[in-house]
Design a protein around this nucleic acid. Structure first.
Length: 571
DNA sequence: GCCGTTTTCGGCCCGACTGTTTTCAGTCG
């Protein structure tokens, strides 16, 4: 499913406005209004227009007018005014964990601190020591938070990088004389965080492509380093690099631009054993070219089949390829369903009916609705609401014989590993996902016991987003993952690969570890809106990086096998 | 700023945790 770009841009502008409004001391309820509208527009399945935006829930007259102006000229007056009043670095301050708008306001207005860097300097220089509200522990936490933030640098998650790459690639394809355009680098390898979006192209006139980059409003510092090679910086983060190469060496160039450095080093060593050299131009025996036009030819000349980009990390894939033992990696088409999704009964933005219809359009054989459970109090879930939803789902099932609808829930794993409802209630759900949503800072020993206890609960089928990390916002929880995965394998509890791009959880290195323990996986969207159902592509990328096959993934299985795994064979 | 089975004003998702406070403000999910 294609993302509707206008919606994403409008939502980003409203979200920025909400943040700036809060940082300018604006009323908290109005801040929430802008945030709610941004979330609703981002999750709205239709492309927003001046005519239909007023119908989006949470959008009233005032926001509709702002959206209208934004669609006309890419901005609105009130946003321009706030941008002029609140420096960009102050907005970055609230990315520091535990630092919210109120604190940022004090830091900026009373101390002139206008960036995370300036905050670190002020703390180190003792300028905040003794200030009411800033005790020694608070200062130490803030300093650690800033350092964590700056370490992450301009890395962005897959969702942001993919959106940026798609937009730039589409623009390049429109250029006169453009030939091929492909995404390479870490993004092609499916990495969960991206520092640089690398694009490769062929063109009759390389300068025309560089000119396209210069014309894109969301790229800055466009520099042509040599003819046909350019780099730029995207407005909100990563660098963009474009390389225009000759058609005849496309394969060698794509291989070189995709990496990883370690994988390429292995290939070069293999070439060297034969007295050959491998470069971005081709594979050569002295001056004689052996292969260059396609990646397949280059790999074949080195004695192996084409290696999927997600495996190119020098983690054993070269040896496996040489002996013909590459795994049959899971693909998006192998997925037969989704086992973790939300609706507007809790924090989703689409109704049950809309989500089910969208799932059917994706061709799923089964689809689970797993709204939040009561212990996450702000969601205001009750057993009565869950049972009423189950009845609605059963009625929808009658009209959709081609897709099995599963009524599930996303439980909360409490500090001691217990979950929201007793066993007799849980037994009424077709699928129970259990996730950590609180108490993130337990000791590793406590967190390990907690996750193992959840695995040992016979009603729990899947551990949702196991590390609970949020890329760029919250570090993963600390646990003895070997012990957790042993428990998961022993109890037949699947680990989730949550595909939501800022989660990407489990990350691929932990998937690899879990698989060695014999754990099975669920690749879920964790969708909170119709467009989010497409996030599963990111989870598939993580699974492929870990070498997973369809047999490792419970939602690749036929319905009967899945239901047996869920211990609901009669469902 | 949005919204209406409280319907054009007066509410707005609720409670725990943290570090600081000596009774609470800010942040988070």
């Amino acid at each position: 499913m294609a993302m509707s770009r206008a919606n994403d841009a409008v939502a980003a502008a409203l979200q920025e406005y909400a943040e700036l409004f809060a940082l300018d001391g604006g009323d908290a309820f109005r801040v929430r209004s802008y945030q709610r509208a941004a979330k609703a527009i981002a999750g709205h399945p239709e492309e927003v227009t001046p005519e239909n935006v007023r119908a989006v829930p949470g959008v009233g007259e005032a926001i509709a007018r702002k959206v209208e102006e934004f669609l006309r000229r890419g901005g609105f007056r009130q946003l321009d005014e706030l941008r002029a009043r609140v420096p960009e670095g102050v907005r970055r301050l609230v990315r520091v964990p535990s630092l919210g708008p109120k604190t940022a306001l004090v830091l900026f207005h009373e101390y002139g601190i206008d960036s995370p860097e300036a905050l670190a300097e002020a703390i180190r220089a003792g300028r905040l020591t003794g200030r009411k509200g800033f005790g020694p522990k608070t200062l130490a936490n803030l300093l650690a938070g800033v350092e964590h933030l700056l370490e992450a640098g301009s890395q962005v998650h897959l969702g942001v990088a993919t959106g940026l790459a798609d937009r730039v690639a589409a623009a390049l394809r429109e250029a006169p004389g453009a030939g091929r355009v492909a995404v390479a680098g870490a993004l092609r390898r499916g990495a969960e965080t991206i520092a640089e979006v690398e694009l490769l192209a062929t063109a009759a006139d390389p300068a025309a492509l560089v000119a396209v980059l210069r014309g894109l409003p969301y790229l800055a510092e466009v520099a042509e380093e040599e003819p046909g090679t350019a780099s730029a910086r995207a407005a909100d983060g990563p660098r963009v690099r474009l390389r225009v190469v000759p058609e005849e060496s496309w394969g060698a160039a794509l291989l070189a631009a995709t990496g990883s450095a370690a994988h390429l080093a292995r290939l070069r060593a293999l070439a060297a054993e034969r007295g050959w050299t491998l470069t971005g131009q081709g594979l050569y025996d002295g001056g004689r070219p052996l292969a260059a036009a396609t990646e397949e030819e280059v790999y074949a000349a080195l004695g192996m089949p084409w290696v999927p980009p997600e495996l190119r990390e020098d983690a054993g894939e070269v040896e496996a390829a040489l002996r013909g033992g590459l795994p049959r990696l899971v693909t998006l088409e192998d997925l037969r369903g989704d086992l973790h999704t939300h609706t507007d009964l809790t924090d989703g933005v689409a109704s049950l009916e809309e989500m089910v219809a969208a799932a059917a359009r994706r061709g799923h054989a089964y689809y689970a609705v797993t709204d939040h459970a009561p212990d996450l109090v702000m969601q205001r879930m009750t057993l009565e609401k869950a049972l009423a939803q189950r009845e609605r789902l059963r009625r929808l099932q009658a009209a959709r014989p081609g897709m099995r609808l599963l009524h599930g829930t996303e439980l909360n794993i409490g500090p001691d590993g217990s979950v929201d409802w007793p066993a007799e209630i849980l037994a009424g759900f077709d699928v129970c996902v259990a996730s950590v949503h609180s108490h993130f800072t337990q000791s590793p020993a406590e967190m390990t016991r907690r996750l193992i206890a959840a695995c040992e609960n016979p009603e729990v089928h899947v551990i949702g987003h196991p590390t609970t990390r949020k890329i760029g916002k919250r570090p993963p929880v600390e646990a003895d993952w070997d012990a957790v995965f042993r428990a998961a394998a022993r109890t037949g509890t699947a680990m989730e690969i949550d595909s939501y791009p800022d989660r990407a959880d489990l990350p691929s290195d932990l998937v690899r570890l879990a698989r060695r323990h014999g754990v099975k996986f669920a690749i879920d969207s964790d969708a909170h809106a119709v467009p989010h159902l497409a996030f599963q592509r990111f989870g598939v990328g993580i699974a492929r990086r870990a070498g997973l096959t369809p047999d490792d993934v419970i939602n690749c299985w036929p319905p009967e096998r899945l239901l047996a795994f869920l211990r609901r064979p009669g469902a």
